[in-house]
Write a protein that binds this DNA or RNA. Structure first.
Length: 523
RNA sequence: GGGGCGGUAGCUCAGCUGGUUAGAGCAGCGGACUCAUAAUCCGUCGGUCCUGGGUUCAAGUCCCAGCCGCCCUACCA
């Protein structure tokens, strides 16, 4: 695999939302991919950030007696940046749509589209839902109940919609339907997984309408450069973060070296990324993204997680008990990336115990404890390898390669289950070789050394391979193994090549047993 | 209404272009071992592959119909 730019993005958080495990899930997936590529010699760059414009934010800010910028600042600092810490995201940049670099260059982009004739003036009248920040079709409305009886309300928010008509600027998106379809046809990987691609294609095949891209009823947004009485539609504004953060409009060299990006998005916002966004880029004469990957939803009790149903779970509820590594591992391992996945405390707790504590954590403990006890902490040199020893080495190589192939397809769950084959095989190897028995007999001293040497090497391979997912635990393990240089600098594509450090250091349990775990309850 | 995805052991899921007695992990049960976080290892129990038709020498895997769940999308009222 040749080294190159690997630019990966998460959606930017809408600051008014409350962080839940769904947000953290997207972040972790992108972070794991970024770390993996970074440790594969690529110039990996992970972008995340916040979406801060729009009427909804303006209204909450006013309701809270502050300016919208102050409101956004507060949420960024108290909710969103802390979320990244909670699940240990190593992002390279954090863009806010209120950053000057974004506002200025988003305007450049818009002006460019305008000059090139992709934008026209039109009249728009329709029912507008402030909650959705968009105009609704009548079919999206339902009859209100309770306080709103007799009025049409948004089917999603159950709140009254407003009948607005305004002069709008429109983006001639309809002109790009054919080019988009050609893109999906010629590059099947552009939208993935397959189910997502099908959805998008059938949507575009029905034809595209033009997109209203400005609002004049409020002013919390990016000003339309040729008509400052309008602000840019929030989605149009938000999507541009992916290029403004990469230097578009102000640093051509940087932009050239990073773009195009791989976008990781939830399937609910797939269409914005797989249809509108590439159309915008085509209009501007900019290369389309490398890929848009729509992952599934987290289901709690068989239903899409939601705040209104009290199934929304804050990431810290999990990390406070299990730690950030376990959070990352669980969601990456238990859910096929791209499909919906069910979350339950029982499953999380069971996997933590059996896979992290008993499987990987205990393996590390037993190997290091034996080197300390039988070899005075010195990693022994190997004698002649038996077929059993060579089989372990072969597995190290095999899983290293298979994991890389899985990551290449964004099959993070497959990569992890492949690596776990090495965990299981090493546990079996140790039980079979019985180093504790070898240690009792001076004549088997060399064999003992070879076995422990092999086990230490295997652990080192695991530390490297798992470092993108379990950065904290593998960092401790790497140190305990006497690994030289920083673990984050170890090449994951050559993980199996590591042949051991000089001496080990005692290691606390990587994933301590959680004796009594009480499932958090809401309210 | 049109379309997509799914319905496989108690639980969570694999099963690619159809091919011997349907797999994994966890949970359960039995045994071994003691280096380790009562951990690990071995063995074992366990399935009308949603239902009904059909194609085929052969279907969990293809076709048709239906039921259930979720999603995208349209529209009548």
């Amino acid at each position: 695999m040749s080294a190159g730019s690997f630019y990966i993005t998460t959606p930017i958080f809408y600051v008014n939302d409350v962080p839940h495990i769904g947000h953290a899930y997207t972040e972790v997936a992108a972070d794991v991919l970024a770390r993996w590529h970074r440790q594969s010699g690529d110039d990996a760059w992970l972008l995340t950030g916040t979406d801060e414009h729009g009427q909804k934010i303006l209204r909450t800010a006013i309701a809270n007696g502050v300016t919208p910028k102050e409101w956004a600042d507060r949420l960024v600092e108290t909710a969103w940046k802390p979320l990244l810490k909670t699940v240990n995201i190593a992002n390279d940049d954090f863009i806010r749509t209120t950053d000057e670099r974004h506002e200025v260059n988003a305007q450049k982009f818009l002006q460019h589209l305008h000059d090139a004739g992709h934008i026209y003036t039109g009249e728009y009248e329709g029912y507008y839902c402030v909650g959705c920040e968009e105009y609704k079709q009548t079919s999206d409305l339902v009859d209100g109940t309770g306080d709103y009886t007799g009025q049409p309300v948004c089917a999603i928010h159950s709140k009254p919609v407003e009948l607005l008509h305004e002069k709008n600027y429109f983006f001639k998106m309809s002109a790009f339907a054919d080019r988009l379809l050609a893109l999906y046809e010629e590059n099947p990987n552009f939208v993935q997984p397959e189910a997502a691609r099908n959805e998008v294609m059938s949507f575009v095949k029905r034809g595209l309408s033009d997109l209203s891209i400005s609002r004049s009823s409020f002013d919390w947004g990016i000003k339309v450069p040729w008509d400052e009485s309008h602000v840019v539609y929030v989605w149009f504004d938000a999507l541009l973060n992916y290029i403004t953060a990469a230097g578009y409009g102000q640093n051509d060299d940087e932009f050239e070296s990073r773009w195009p990006a791989t976008h990781i998005v939830g399937k609910d916002i797939l269409r914005f990324h797989a249809v509108i966004w590439p159309a915008m880029l085509m209009a501007a004469g900019i290369e389309v993204p490398k890929q848009v990957f729509g992952h599934g939803w987290l289901l709690v009790g068989g239903e899409k997680m939601s705040k209104s149903k009290l199934t929304g779970i804050a990431p810290s509820q999990i990390t406070d008990t299990f730690g950030s590594d376990a959070f990352r591992y669980y969601f990456m391992r238990a859910i096929s990336f791209g499909q919906d996945g069910s979350f339950s405390w029982e499953d999380l707790s069971a996997r933590y115990q059996s896979e992290l504590a008993n499987g990987f954590g205990n393996l590390a403990s037993r190997v290091i404890a034996m080197v300390v006890r039988y070899c005075d902490s010195v990693v022994p040199a190997a004698g002649a390898f038996t077929t059993d020893d060579l089989a372990i080495q072969a597995t190290e190589k095999r899983v290293t390669e298979a994991a890389a192939a899985a990551i290449d397809k964004l099959a993070i769950h497959d990569a992890l289950s492949t690596v776990w084959e090495l965990v299981d095989e090493l546990n079996g190897y140790i039980t079979l070789q019985e180093p504790w028995a070898l240690a009792k007999n001076p004549e088997s001293r060399e064999r003992l050394g070879t076995v422990l040497h092999t086990a230490v090497r295997g652990l080192g391979t695991l530390a490297v391979l798992l470092s993108p997912v379990l950065p904290v635990a593998t960092g401790k393990l790497w140190t305990a193994l006497g690994g030289d240089a920083a673990l984050a600098d170890q090449r994951v594509d050559r993980a199996w090549e590591w042949t051991g450090g000089a001496a080990v250091r005692a290691l606390e349990p990587l994933f301590p047993r959680i004796e009594s775990f009480v499932e958090p309850t809401d309210g």
